[in-house]
């Protein structure tokens, strides 16, 4: 009785921390149950997709702005960490936030002028930006290594305390083994989920929803529309930048063709499939679309064909997304009667 009371109080007082812990902590057992290195590696890649989908969800799901060039921010983060590391010897733990910030700066620079553009035109601006970034990385050989990319990016290092033979810190470097990366990505996903929950419950979050529902009404009510939209854009770019740094450190190589338009579209599909505006929805969408191609591997040549068919079927049977938020569904109805 008392124990359940304790949990109830805990949940009431820290609803977001509890939700994040409840949904994500079980994943920390994954490498202990499934020892197959390949599966852990796959889960790590999916974790990066989850980060990206959560980040894109801020812009697409919360703010209702269609971004078709999200891979560009992922690319900028990856290249930012790679360049900082290769030229300035910047360690991973410094490069991680730095990559996020660089990506955010780009997000703001791109966002500031283009965010006034309405609806689908913004989608095209972001699409154009995404292509420009990819082509630029491909063509600026002196800085980015061109199509060969940047090689030899440092993996993260952590310091483990040791007590045998006197207290000292032992350096442990990440390697091909994906398990440490798995926990790194899981930690970041938890951090991002918590951050986004807090944001969605804050003034900014409510302002974002207000803008999505009716921009004009929101601005009439005194919501600083441009500022709020920019915040969403910047935050989403920040998350993508951090994901990029993790990706670069895990691959130890970045090449421009990893960040093409198809990736932007795929992340968008994850957000929409999972349910726009729902943080767990984005994560679930990423999990499904990330794992599907691997599950369909045995169909060999028919793999991507089936992937396409399943995307269509999933949307037809669940147009609002698997965990579509109640609000969006309501909004849909009003949109129709307009």
């Amino acid at each position: 009785m008392r124990v359940s009371d304790f949990f109830k109080r805990l949940f009431r007082r820290h609803p977001f921390s509890c939700q994040v812990a409840l949904f994500l902590l079980p994943f920390s057992l994954f490498p202990l149950i499934d020892k197959n290195v390949y599966h852990i590696d796959l889960m790590t890649s999916i974790g990066i997709y989850v980060l990206l989908a959560m980040g894109l969800n801020v812009v697409v799901g919360f703010a209702g702005l269609l971004n078709l060039g999200y891979a560009a921010f992922f690319a900028i983060g990856a290249y930012a960490y790679a360049l900082l590391n290769l030229h300035a010897g910047c360690p991973f733990w410094l490069g991680l936030p730095a990559a996020g910030i660089v990506s955010m700066i780009f997000g703001l620079v791109i966002g500031a002028p283009s965010i006034r553009i309405r609806g689908d035109y913004l989608a095209i601006t972001t699409l154009g930006f995404g292509e420009i970034v990819r082509i630029a990385f491909n063509n600026l050989d002196e800085w980015t290594g061109g199509p060969n990319g940047l090689l030899g990016i440092a993996r993260p290092k952590i310091w483990v305390p040791r007590f045998e033979g006197g207290f000292h810190w032992e350096t442990f470097s990440f390697s091909v083994n994906p398990t440490p990366y798995f926990y790194l990505v899981l930690g970041l996903v938890m951090f991002a989920a918590y951050l986004l929950f807090r944001m969605s419950d804050s003034k900014i979050g409510r302002a974002l929803v207000a803008i999505r529902e009716d921009e004009l009404a929101a601005s009439c009510m005194g919501v600083p529309v441009l500022k709020i939209k920019l915040t969403a854009f910047g935050l989403s770019a920040f998350i993508a930048g951090m994901a990029g740094a993790v990706f670069a450190s895990k691959q130890t190589i970045v090449t421009p063709d990893s960040f093409d338009f198809v990736l932007s579209v795929l992340i968008l599909a994850m957000v929409v499939l999972g349910g726009m505006g729902n943080i767990w929805g984005a994560a679930l969408g990423a999990l499904i679309l990330g794992a599907l191609p691997e599950l369909l591997r045995e169909f060999a040549n028919y793999r991507m064909l089936l992937f396409g068919v399943m995307m269509v079927l999933m949307m037809i049977f669940r147009p609002q997304g698997i965990l579509g938020s109640q609000l969006i569904r309501r909004e849909m109805r009003t949109e129709k009667s307009e």
């Binding site: 929409v272 499939l273 949307m315 037809i316 147009p319 609002q320 969006i328």
Partner: peptide, 9 residues
């Protein structure tokens, strides 16, 4: 459905 659903299909 929402417009984005058709975009995904």
């Amino acid at each position: 459905s929402p417009r984005l659903a058709a975009l995904i299909t």
